[in-house]
């Protein structure tokens, strides 16, 4: 396994090449942030696959509005019922492959990722240095409880799957499209992040971790990996081992 850590600063001068890059944005009740994220990414020329995972708020209407502004760049996939993060990502990735994507990036809809990091996580794929890139959030910036939960998840990922990563729960990832069919993703919830790591390990894919920025707002504080989610993922991992 090839694991190099490169800093996002090194790639800032790279030209933003958006050809063949599909960004999968899973969204569940993200009406406050999803519109601006989709439009900002579409403005940069990326193809956006937004997966509305059975939202009960106005997420779907908002992305419809964004699609009318960028009809060629925005695709909306609507889950009639909520199936969780894992299922939403899977839907988005399968659709991207059908549309002929070369690179598939997953991007959280809550506004915690910086737009320029999309380019940074794609770079190692384009240079041929890696098949999968995970955007690692610097843990020093995290609030204490989040840092603890994420550290715990890294340890558990290491314990169960024997692979050490800087950030096992990051939502910003980039894949070369040809490796996606090899990933067997079954988790529906947040456990999917660890499952990606397991599949990367199992298929001997070349992984690179790129340090990314994380924007902490009230929105992003309330979602993602906290202790309860951590316990749930732990339980899933144990069941997986027993199966």
């Amino acid at each position: 396994m090839n694991k190099n850590i490169i800093s996002s600063k090194n790639s800032d001068d790279a030209v933003e090449d958006t050809v063949g890059v599909f960004i999968v944005v899973p969204a569940f009740n993200e009406e406050k942030t999803v519109g601006s994220i989709v439009e900002e990414l579409a403005k940069r020329g990326y193809k956006i696959v937004i997966v509305d995972d059975g939202s009960v708020d106005r997420t779907y209407e908002i992305v419809k509005g964004s699609k009318s502004k960028y009809p060629d760049n925005v695709f909306i996939l609507h889950h009639p019922v909520n199936r969780g993060l894992g299922a939403a990502l899977k839907t988005g990735m399968i659709f991207s492959l059908l549309k002929g994507a070369d690179y598939v990036v997953t991007f959280d809809a809550d506004g915690q990722h910086a737009f320029e990091d999309v380019k940074n996580v794609c770079l190692p794929l384009k240079l041929g240095n890696a098949q999968v890139v995970i955007g690692a959030r610097p843990f020093e910036d995290m609030p204490t409880t989040k840092r603890f939960a994420n550290n715990m998840m890294n340890f558990m990922t290491f314990f169960f799957y024997k692979i050490k990563v800087k950030d096992s729960q990051s939502g910003l990832r980039a894949f070369k499209s040809e490796v996606i069919p090899k990933l067997n993703i079954l988790s529906r919830g947040y456990g999917v992040s660890s499952e990606f790591i397991k599949e990367i390990h199992k298929n001997h894919l070349e992984l690179e971790e790129v340090t990314i920025k994380t924007i902490y707002t009230d929105e992003t504080q309330n979602k993602g990996t906290n202790i309860f989610v951590g316990m749930k993922i732990l339980f899933k991992m144990i069941i997986d081992v027993l199966k």
Partner: peptide, 20 residues
């Protein structure tokens, strides 16, 4: 059953997007 529902939901979502 959950996995099967996921497959159905994915199929429906992709079918509807293409149809739209």
């Amino acid at each position: 059953i959950n996995q099967n529902i996921n497959k159905l939901v994915t199929e429906i979502a992709i079918h509807n997007e293409n149809h739209d």
